[in-house]
Design a protein around this nucleic acid. Structure first.
Lengths: 227, 227
DNA sequence: GACGAATTGGACAAGCCTGTCTAAATTTGT
DNA sequence: ACAAATTTAGACAGGCTTGTCCAATTCGTC
């Protein structure tokens, strides 16, 4: 029915499904137990395959770990850039639009399964795989901050904000918007929707108080005052 | 010289020194290798004692781990509250004083050995010892934020700042001041003095932009205006 | 200098985990 | 339905680690 252009070189099918299943289970176990504490039998059981299948697909424990990190990095980066694409370039209500953006960012990239897992793996094993995580660092935060800074610069250029250094502003935006979620992040948990919204709202208000456009040259808009 | 009231019940002397040495080495190894990956032989070697001495002092691996966490928690909290005591209640130059305070906080509590180790242990093993870290959470961040919020409230009351919710302001202050150190923290490294100073300076500037005292102390404060 | 407590080094059993191998059972493509 | 590839369950060796035991030695104290 659906065998298209590659009938022979491709392994059957559930082959790939099992591979994904193993990587997912491995991510979960590596995060829960740490690299050294992770048990291949447990990963196999959680993936619903036999131990031998794990070895058939990934060779050994270290290769499996690397595959997990690459997988998470890729998915997280994709999510982050998809979300940055939704940055409010032409805001109608700047505060509401930025809060909504921050909430999207948190929900889809930072607090979701992949985001929490990747963060924990970086924190726990970052020192042991410098090159692996250097790659993440460049592709992830490096590009994220830069892309976000460009959006804020555009907002400033359009007269919506008054920003000195867009890179600093971008990092501070993220820091403010997550200010109330630090402890939850540290313990590896997922904040509730209310917590995310509250932190984003408070963070954006402070951000706008600090970076509100300086008094309007044409007298169009009154300055925002922090409640 | 100094043998006071208890000549017999006290173990000799280097007994205690070795105990400290073991706990220090254990902290280092647990952080580097994770709980499961930590090797008692390695801890003993790094502490300069025999393996048997480790068992004599601490019983088993888990008890040793708990001792390490309690030790770090205690020292970190002591450092944090000592630093909070130096909060600039009567600032001469608000920006400079807050930057200096933030730098002290980072250098003495957050970026030093104990702070980095404790953070990493919480991140890595927090899920496995809920009660142990619940204790930390109450004694540490809970009291820290509350104490810091009180200081900011005082500053606002004295007319130096205009703050809505002191608890929110305190958390945002910490978030801003550390905004540029996130990646370094995540990888477990120690930022340079320049990085700490830069992050603190930028953070305090933004914080003051947002929470600067509103003008017209005599007149009514401007109402919340929203374009 | 002598006594007692603490420390050391090493041997040791028990358990766990990784990674390999094999033969049987299952699935997939044709 | 048939043949090839994949998966499975289990056994298994090898290595590593924890925690215990013990005899010899060192250290601190009187």
């Amino acid at each position: 029915m659906k065998h298209g252009v590659s009938p022979d070189t491709f392994p059957p099918r559930s082959h790939e499904a099992k591979r994904v299943s193993v990587v997912d289970a491995a991510a979960s176990v590596f995060c829960r137990e740490g690299y050294a504490g992770a048990n291949i039998d447990l990963i196999a059981a959680e993936a619903g395959v036999s131990r031998q299948t794990v070895y058939n697909h990934h060779g050994d424990k270290e290769k499996l770990f690397v595959a997990v990190v690459r997988d998470l990095t890729e998915r997280c980066n994709a999510g982050i850039f998809a979300t940055i694409a939704s940055f409010p370039d032409q805001p109608t209500d700047l505060e509401a639009d930025l809060v909504a953006f921050a909430v999207r960012m948190n929900r889809n990239c930072i607090c979701n399964r992949d985001g929490r897992f990747l963060r924990k793996l970086i924190q726990a094993e970052g020192g042991r795989y410098p090159e692996l995580f250097a790659e993440w660092r460049e592709q992830g935060p490096g590009r994220t901050w830069s892309a976000l800074a460009a959006r804020f610069a555009r907002l400033a250029f359009a007269g919506h904000l008054s920003i000195g250094d867009p890179d600093v502003a971008a990092r501070q935006f993220l820091a403010l918007v997550n200010a109330e979620l630090q402890i939850t992040f540290m313990l590896g948990g997922a904040p509730t929707e209310e917590e995310v919204l509250s932190s984003a709202t408070n963070g954006v208000r402070t951000f706008l108080s600090a970076f509100a456009r300086k008094k309007s040259p044409a007298g169009k808009q009154a300055a925002l005052v922090h409640a």
